[in-house]
Design a binder for these strands. Sequence first.
DNA 1: GACAGATGAAGGA
DNA 2: TCCTTCATCTGTC
Length: 178
Amino acid sequence: MKEKIEPVELPVATADGKFIACYSENGLAKLEFPNPKRRSRGDESQTQNSVGDSSHRLLQDKIRGWHRLTEVALKKFLTGSASQKLPPLDWTGKTEFQKSVWRALLKIAPGKTKSYGEIARAIGRPKAVRAVGGACGANPIPVLVPCHRVLAANNKLGGFSGGLERKRSLLKREGIKI
DNA sequence: GACAGATGAAGGA
DNA sequence: TCCTTCATCTGTC
């Protein structure tokens, strides 16, 4: 049986605070917004996650590479510009519907927005607008998977897992006015 | 199986 | 123009 690799959490320091990126053996699995209440966990030392044999070392190298991509991409997103390269995203265990919604989100260009209805039509389920909202809320990798670029009808903000203020701020940096 | 949800559209005041 | 109501679809418990 294949050994299970524990997820690796790494901090990403940005002007907005310290995001927490969580990597699995398949790629970036989760990105958490800065949370002042969350206790610091020793920063970069988290990379030394019980590195034992050479395959683990290879994985650590791989994750370090992904982390660099994540840092660059996140900082670019936070300044409102597009990132050409993203680390592989690990959506293991998520439903096909959610993955298709998130794939549609990745296609939204910086500075552009789409409505929940447009996303629903883009994935071929024009009536699943509420479910699209649910999938956006379940997005484990906000900012990089730009669920903040999805607005409700009439150019209203809708909601955002990281808080509406953060959504408004991200959109403002991309030059989008609500 | 029931319920909730980050919606959208239509109708009425 | 704003507010309310209802239809619709999916995920979660």
